[in-house]
Design a protein around this nucleic acid. Structure first.
Lengths: 340, 340
DNA sequence: AAATATTTTGCAATCGATTGTATTTTACTC
DNA sequence: GAGTAAAATACAATCGATTGCAAAATATTT
């Protein structure tokens, strides 16, 4: 209301008739200060809408209470900008961070400088980082970690690294998805994805193992490397069916977006789902169950993931031990794979 | 690499054999400083990975180069956390802001204090705000604007306000969507949404006008107020069909998510789309075209929206005039409304 | 009531970069 | 080579909050 001039701690202190040091401590409920004084200062602060100058506070305390969240995009793809799963994760992280008194600075790997340690941490923009996605190379992440940046990554928790990685059990997820299709009678199951991602590679291994356990050999032409986008999936399936006819009866997709693209291509060609081809996605984005047929998929608990990541990060601030963390993962069976 | 102790401007200056003021200016290519000196300092800075301390710089310059982006959620709904459209907008904003040298602090209306001016601006957390969504009440936004906060809102650009609002032409969008269905022969078109939102209300007005132009009267039981979520839409349609049978032949939805929910409910009851009921969504999220049938919808250009918002915000920093801005909006006809 | 212990409060330095002004250095003129 | 103009650099204050330590006020003991 009355905003003649900016209200600083000094002015607030003057109003309260105390020194700035006392005022500062009073605002933080420091027991050094008499109860009555604390109350007076706090009341005045509320009355005049005082709020601490973050820049000054950060400079002095060397803490920002900000966490940089980086969407670690793959260079030529636009996966992350579009992918509802990753964005959902960001939403959950925002919640989880705020609950712990931290703010979320959003960035993606295209924008920030390559030297994350310097750009985010040494420059005091943030106290730590959460990197979403391991990308095709973990070079930048590794470098930041070596520079001592408090860091947590969303990715494949089985990867060797000197920072904690939070993620689902991708091997198991790939295994479950594939086994499920094989049990439903599929003989030639495609794997649609990109094994250059650590996560995808694990899923692929699960895919292979599932075949082995079922005593079904995997034909090499069932491994399809594509970008993790619905568009790429759509085009690939379209192309393949046009060229080879329907030479498969199941698809394990590396994300729901990929699954949706594949689904669309098949539907346009009047391929019956799941009668002719069964499909399993990955992520259980909100639209999976809205599809027709509803999409069978692997659900990863994003809320649990977000709080685990925040937890692992805060532990680093306190010098405690950290560890990679496996998020609950489960197969959600819906119509796209379930014969009547 | 060599991180004995934090590299400050002072140390860098010492390395270069100049004063901090010279070093500071040299880094900014200030013409006061001799070319040769500039180069030397800059080279040294690069060599030693120097980066300016943001906290100190912000304190001194009183500029943060940070923009707070607020997801203005509706209290009891979880619309924004889930809605791909809003998240996409955030992604685009991130791009647009970074292109202008700003960073994006993500927040939602649940977390931040109610006093945005104080929390974000006076506390020097950010230089300005972008609010996504007008919510059911613009009280908080209005208050912040009155307090002089540089501010842009995503919402209905026709709303009266003393801050710029960027958004599609919702009236036109609602009109086009409805007219399209009526032209396809629909007689009883539902409006699925919540008129408490300024944006939705405009769409609703367009819906009414379309009927009037077509000389078709609108039955009051065709106006359906629901939360803007696919779940609410699913349940509503489910309920309604169960209770009344199929007493409509078209639906204008206030978002694609709503449309998907409705679609699912109808499909489960074997209602033919578009043969029995035509559906039009709003937003053209990436999944709209992947649906089966692909969803007819109103597309709003999010990239244009993001850069318009950033532009309007930056204008305020420079004391220039601002104005609300209407983003390109177009009807995208797909199968969900198009009889063969 | 003096002396000591305890509770409260204030002083002043500090975080690191920026910038108006003063000072030094170099260039130029006569 | 003295004198002035121009160019380059340095000084020192400043942004606003925090905090170790000193000082003052109050309480307790004998």
């Amino acid at each position: 209301m009355s905003s003649e001039t900016k209200l600083t701690l000094a002015k607030l202190a003057k109003l309260a008739g105390v020194s700035t040091s006392t005022a500062s401590r009073a605002l933080k409920d420091n027991p050094l200060i008499k109860q009555e004084t604390r109350r007076k200062v706090q009341a005045l602060a509320k009355e005049h809408n005082y709020s601490v100058n973050a820049a000054a506070s950060r400079l002095r305390t060397q803490k920002t209470h900000v966490i940089a969240v980086i969407l670690n995009l793959i260079d030529h793809t636009e996966q992350s900008t579009t992918d509802p799963f990753l964005l959902k994760l960001v939403g959950e992280l925002n919640q989880a961070l705020n609950a712990k008194g931290y703010e979320l600075l959003l960035s993606n790997s295209f924008m920030a400088s390559d030297d994350w340690a310097n750009y985010f941490i040494h420059s005091q923009r943030a106290d730590g980082m959460i990197v979403i996605g391991q990308g095709k190379s973990t070079k930048k992440i590794d470098r930041a970690a070596e520079a001592g940046v408090p860091l947590v990554v969303w990715g494949d928790p089985k990867s060797e690294a000197n920072y904690p990685i939070v993620g689902g059990d991708n091997y198991q997820g790939g295994f479950d998805a594939t086994t499920h299709l094989l049990q439903k009678g599929a003989k030639r199951v495609l794997f649609l994805g990109d094994a250059e991602h650590a996560e995808m590679q694990e899923r692929y291994k699960g895919y292979l193992q599932a075949h082995q356990n079922a005593n079904i050999s995997v034909s090499s032409d069932c491994t399809c490397t594509i970008d993790i986008t619905s568009k790429a999936a759509y085009e690939y399936i379209n192309q393949r069916v046009k060229a080879n006819g329907l030479d498969f009866d199941g698809i394990v997709c590396s994300s729901d977006m990929v699954a949706l693209g594949a689904l669309k291509a098949l539907k346009e060609r009047y391929v019956g789902i799941p009668s002719d081809v069964g499909i399993v996605g990955y992520d259980d984005i909100s639209l999976a169950e809205l599809m027709h047929p509803a999409l069978t998929t692997i659900r990863q608990n994003t809320q649990q993931a977000a709080s685990a990541m925040v937890d692992q990060l805060l532990r680093q601030f306190e010098g405690q031990e950290t560890a990679s963390y496996v998020v609950d993962t489960q197969l959600v069976v819906r119509r796209s794979s379930k014969h009547d």
